[in-house]
Design a protein around this nucleic acid. Sequence first.
DNA 1: ACATTAAGTGGTG
DNA 2: CACCACTTAATGT
Length: 198
Amino acid sequence: MLIDTALLISNGGTIHSFNSTDYIFQVDEMPKYYYQIISGDVKLNYNYENGKELIQSLLTDGDSVCELLLFVDEAYPVNAVAMSDCTLIRVPKKEFLKMLDERPSVASVVSKYIATTLAHKLVMMQNMACVKAEDRIMGTLRYFKSFYHDKTPFSYELKLTRQQFACITGLRTETVIRWLKKFETSGIVKIIDRKVFY
DNA sequence: ACATTAAGTGGTG
DNA sequence: CACCACTTAATGT
C-alpha cells in the first residue's frame, strides 16, 4: 500500500465503506480528503455530454485515489466510482498535508507514486493518440501486460469486460469484440470461456 | 424462473 | 468505425 494504514489513522484517517457503483467523489467537487483503498476496485472516469464514458484509471487495493488534486487547489476533473464493494481510508486534506510536512519519507513516497502514475499515463496517451482502433487496442493490451510479472505469451488475463475495455480505449464495445476476435484468429490473443489472454 | 448484464452478430451510414 | 437492433450466453436474486 502507498501509506501505512495505521499512520493514516493516527493522522485523522477514518474508514469508509462504499457499495459497487457508489461515487466516492464527483467531477467539479473540490478535493477535501486524501483517499486510499484498503480493499476493492475503483475507477476514475468522465462522462461526456453524449452519454459516453471514458475510464481514466483503474485503482485497487493500496492505491490512493487521485491524490495529486490535493496539491493543486482545483476541482476534480474526474469522478471516482466504486466498481465493487470497497473499503477506503479517508484523511482530511489539511491533516494529510501536515503529515507530509512532518514526514519527508512519506512525502517522498507520495511524489514518487505521482511521478510513476504520470509516467504510465504518458504511455497510455501514446496509445490513445493512435488513429487506428487496432493499434489502440493492442497498445492498451501491451500497456496492461507491462505491469504484469509474467511476460510469456497468453500469461496475462484481461480482467475487464469488453464494455469496460471499450471505455478505456475510447471505442465501441462491438469494435472491441470484433478486433479481439480478429486477434484471436491471428494468434495474437487467446480467448477461453470468453476470457481474453495476452 | 425471471431479470439483468455481458458477449456476440448483422447491417447501415 | 459508430450506431442501432437483436440474439445468445452467463449471472444474479
